[in-house]
């Protein structure tokens, strides 16, 4: 393996991953899950290579690493057109804020405002 390596969500080093570990049940999904620190590092790399928007995406993603897959799918669903009201979007933003996801919270608040103005609320 090349690249920066680094630690998985579980704290295990990427270099410690082995097929034996998988078969023996010592390795689980969190051992192949990216950590927020790694995503923030990748955001720095993206910014250094002329793409602050990709960096911003990785920074949103870093906050989402701690969320369950079903929660992320639900948040996606909520942001699709006509699914909910601006108030509910703002309430969801407050929840995100409370769960250490301030960038995502601001993002959802921005959506709430635009959705209201452009007819994308329910």
């Amino acid at each position: 393996m090349s690249g920066t390596g680094g630690r998985a969500w579980s704290g295990r080093e990427a270099s410690e991953l082995s097929v034996e570990g998988v078969v023996g049940g010592e390795l689980g999904p969190d051992d192949i899950r990216i950590s927020p620190e790694t995503l923030r590092h990748q955001a720095d790399v993206a910014r250094a290579h002329g793409n602050p928007q990709l960096a911003a995406n990785f920074e949103r993603a870093a906050e989402l690493t701690g969320f369950e897959e079903s929660e992320i799918l639900a948040l996606y669903e909520l942001l699709r057109p006509g699914r909910t009201s601006a108030e509910q979007l703002r309430a969801r933003a407050d929840e995100l804020e409370a769960r250490s996801a301030p960038i995502c919270a601001a993002f959802v608040r921005e959506a709430a405002t635009v959705y209201e103005r452009t007819g994308l609320t329910a």
Binding site: N57, R60, F67, Y115, L120
Partner: peptide, 16 residues
Amino acid sequence: TPWSKALLASAYASRG
């Protein structure tokens, strides 16, 4: 919407 698509992009990145 652009926001839901952007969230999808972040969702994929959040799982590497």
